[in-house]
Write a protein that binds this DNA or RNA. Structure first.
Lengths: 213, 213
DNA sequence: TAGATTGTTAATCGATTAACAATC
DNA sequence: TAGATTGTTAATCGATTAACAATC
């Protein structure tokens, strides 16, 4: 599994965006695109796009551009979209419930196969996903699950994250404001909506024009 | 309002994190902290922290560290936390509803004062927020609103974003997968949960160890 | 004073962008 | 062939980090 160590972090983070945008382009019948045309769609400089794709191989044709179908196939494999990725969700509050209902499957070949929470909700189903008890995390084996979405209260975040790792999961999409301290080899991505909103308001007030993804 | 043009983008994006973490530290009675101690909490290199803060002024004391209360006061002003920032939300689906219920006020001095959607939900209240009709965006004056949270279907995103701008709002927190094309001077932040999840899974599969905020 | 820790300078690193030869 | 557009090299830019003098 350990490969592609030459793909820079910044490039790796743009690949899903490219993939989704190409899916859209394919769906509207586009089967050929140049880097400069694609640049307008994804709002990434065309040179950056060409460089990003060149890390993966020579995917285009000089004087022609890129074949949408071919590029899509390639990225699908690169991004493991052929295999279904199983995901679980911890903390079925407002945000957790929304994410359960949110259609992750639409663009990702991803499914939330189980959720965990305490008492009240245990045993229920939300959007087809069974809710297990928190404490089961101590004994459950979740090695088949690629990532956990963490939507618990901040005070629980570190403790629960450790339980998640313990059960065999190596990736966490962390929606809590807490910076998790976890062993290396565990990959964490942090989505903090309060911070996003504050950063946005700060930027507006300080008159930084222009946009930022 | 246009000031601080010397604060780098990367620094500006970390300030909300510092602010929230300091709030937590203050709440547990900490009133003094060194950059290296703070580094452990926020998971940002201590040199980076010192450099970030130095852009704002000489906020620490050599040989002593930083006074938590003082730093918090300073950041509160810098981040405009004294004034309430009004926010609106467009698209009251699963995600939109969750965000309405989500407690943005807890750490941010921010309030979702109105929401927009179509037919069915118009006139109702969710978490105390009245839902207006989409079409009202054409005539409403929203100059008093700092930012709009965009949680509409992808197909509507560009059109609705233009209506939002037209009504007087200059900032958008965009939860749709669409890259918006908007006039300069408008600030957009993009939160794409599918992309986050895909990027996480990609990283796991490609064995990039280590963590990434 | 001795120890701690800032604020800042200089070095490094990584990412973006400009330019262009290669070539379809 | 002439025009278009890639893939890549070299230049630039911005952010991070190491090192340390200043100083509390």
């Amino acid at each position: 599994m350990v490969t592609d160590h030459q793909v820079p972090q910044a490039t790796a983070e743009r690949l899903p965006l490219y993939y989704q945008s190409l899916q859209h382009l394919a769906s509207i019948g586009k089967n050929r695109i140049s880097s400069s045309e694609f640049s307008k769609v994804v709002q990434v400089d065309s040179t950056t796009i060409r460089k990003d794709l060149s890390y993966l191989g020579a995917l285009g044709r000089k004087g022609y551009g890129y074949d949408v179908g071919h590029l899509l196939d390639f990225l699908r494999k690169t991004l493991y979209q052929d295999e279904l990725s199983k995901v679980m969700l911890i903390g079925v509050g407002n945000l957790g419930t929304a994410l359960l209902n949110y259609n992750f499957l639409k663009n990702n070949n991803t499914k939330i196969v189980k959720a965990y929470d305490t008492d009240r909700k245990v045993g229920k189903k939300i959007a087809g996903t069974v809710i297990h008890h928190f404490e089961d995390l101590r004994t459950d084996d979740n090695h088949d699950i690629a990532a956990a979405i963490l939507t618990v209260p901040a005070s629980q975040a570190q403790k629960v994250a450790e339980m998640v790792i313990h059960s065999g999961v190596n990736g966490i999409l962390n929606f809590t404001p807490v910076r998790l301290s976890l062993p290396s080899g565990i990959y964490v991505r942090h989505v903090d909506m309060s911070v996003e909103l504050q950063a946005l308001i700060y930027s507006l007030n300080h008159g930084m024009e222009g946009k930022k993804a």
